[in-house]
Design a protein around this nucleic acid. Sequence first.
DNA 1: CAATTCGTAATAAACGAAGTTACATGAAGC
DNA 2: GCTTCATGTAACTTCGTTTATTACGAATTG
Lengths: 147, 147
Amino acid sequence: MKRDSRLSSVLHALLHMAEREGPMTSEDLATCMNTHPVVVRRTMGLLREAGLVRSARGPQGGWRISADLGTVTLRQLHETLGEPAIFAIGNRQEMPGCLVEQAVNAALDDAFAEAEALLLHRLGQITLADLAADFSRRHAGRREGKT
Amino acid sequence: MKRDSRLSSVLHALLHMAEREGPMTSEDLATCMNTHPVVVRRTMGLLREAGLVRSARGPQGGWRISADLGTVTLRQLHETLGEPAIFAIGNRQEMPGCLVEQAVNAALDDAFAEAEALLLHRLGQITLADLAADFSRRHAGRREGKT
DNA sequence: CAATTCGTAATAAACGAAGTTACATGAAGC
DNA sequence: GCTTCATGTAACTTCGTTTATTACGAATTG
């Protein structure tokens, strides 16, 4: 199944932007993420609407973060992306008349709702700053390993 | 994204079969599930391999349950279906060289793994007998409402 | 041997995410 | 103002996955 990887994408983009002084162009971001600049604009556009990043046209233009890394959670980003469906498994029919199917749906919906709640809770606990810190650790670790 | 609804499908089928004395043909099942008999055979075939149902060809043939409803869990069925991907959201690249992406993946993988564990645990607690009981409750409730 | 029913391969249809093309808009700098 | 750089966006294409369909084979019953 084709999975939505936009959350992963924007995180990658935001952390790269956080590492930089100036703005990054869609082209820059697309290169470091192996994708297409238009895809970057499309996705980052959603973050712009939410006030998380700003974009500027023309020379010296590009994207830059306009939010505090410590206050932006992964859950918030998920919501900003339009809360795409989390599960690749679902009910055959959403509003069945069949009582059998209603019983099946109820059981599955319950289980999935619980898992979703846990996931969103966890995503709500992780900030961009946390990821940046983890990146720094990995970076230091690699340098050490190389020495 | 297109969601895999086979778990929902087989549950629906199994409960209908449990309600019946004799075997049900692929045609019967397809009719009550609004799908195609070949799809039924394909999916039920996996359950047959796992010994959960039996099929017979020819007249008076069809499908019947060959397992105890109380011992078959939804998790087991999920596994029987080949453990299809649970999440519709994923990492852009599974084995990235980029340290930024590694940090992103690690965080997301963690959260998703936790949610998956919870979901599988829940599915492991629900048996076909539970669903059948819930169906009976709904059935009784509806009759009452109608009287 | 005819009717029924499963078994299965091969193919098509439907759908959604990501990629691509094309062109418009706006900003910087000469 | 004109050129260049860069975003904004709509339209279309490509790709992968799930489900549906067709076609034919094999087994069982009567």
